[in-house]
Simulated assay, not measured.
Amino acid sequence: MAADKAILEQDDALYDEAAEVVRLASAAGLTVGCAESCTGGLVSACLTSAPGSSAAVRGGVVSYAIPVKHDVLGVPYDGLLDVPQLGAVSSECAAAMAMGARKVLSCDACVSVTGIAGPGGGEPGKPVGTVWFGIDTAPSSRTVMHLLEGDRADVRRQACHVALGLLREALMELSAK
């Protein structure tokens, strides 16, 4: 509990980034959402900490467990979640989470976060700190992987920064059209 409190209360940059996402979305009349696994709702918490967030944030889905990824977000078991080389920590899963959450939340831009925050859980080819992100909008979808360093709180905090940055970029792209 103390580590999560520190993530939200002792990182002014996270608050500033979330406020910027809310400002951009509100100014453009756009909405955002999140699908989170290893961050456990922290991205949504950052977004909703910004004043005016109710105008821009549709919601978030914490899909920590595999069945929630499948049942709520529509991430397929066959050929993805049941394949060890892919699984929940993969580009394919991040893309499916973002797309599924954008549909469920009916938002314009949705970010997903899925990875291994540690301290355990690493495996060959997917060490602790491996985090995949998806960003989905009506015109486009993409994923990116970051290998984040530090302890569990560090990985989760850095993942929030990346997720907010992806939302900001997506909103700027949507606003430019």
Rank of each mutant, 00 (worst) to 15 (best):
A2T: 15
A3N: 09
A3P: 07
D4H: 14
A6I: 11
A6L: 13
A6Q: 14
I7T: 13
L8M: 13
D16R: 15
D16W: 10
A19K: 08
E20I: 02
V21N: 00
A25W: 01
S26D: 14
T31Q: 12
C34H: 03
S37N: 11
S37M: 06
T39V: 04
L42S: 07
S49P: 02
A50Q: 01
G52K: 10
G59M: 06
G59F: 04
G60H: 05
S63I: 08
S63W: 06
I66C: 11
H70L: 01
D71F: 12
D71N: 13
D71M: 13
L73F: 10
G74S: 14
G74E: 10
V75R: 03
L81C: 12
D82F: 14
D82Q: 14
P84N: 07
A88Q: 06
A94W: 00
M97Q: 00
M99Y: 07
M99K: 13
G100I: 12
A101H: 06
A101T: 04
K103G: 12
C107P: 09
C110W: 05
V113D: 00
T114E: 09
G121V: 06
G122I: 02
G125E: 08
K126T: 12
G129T: 02
F133V: 08
A138I: 09
P139M: 10
R142Q: 12
H146Y: 11
L148Y: 09
E149I: 06
G150Q: 08
G150S: 12
D151S: 14
A153N: 04
D154S: 14
D154V: 04
V155A: 07
V155D: 00
R156V: 07
R157W: 10
Q158H: 15
A159C: 02
A163F: 01
A163V: 07
G165A: 13
A170F: 05
A170I: 07
M172C: 15
L174R: 04
S175L: 01
S175E: 07
A176M: 10
K177E: 14
K177P: 02
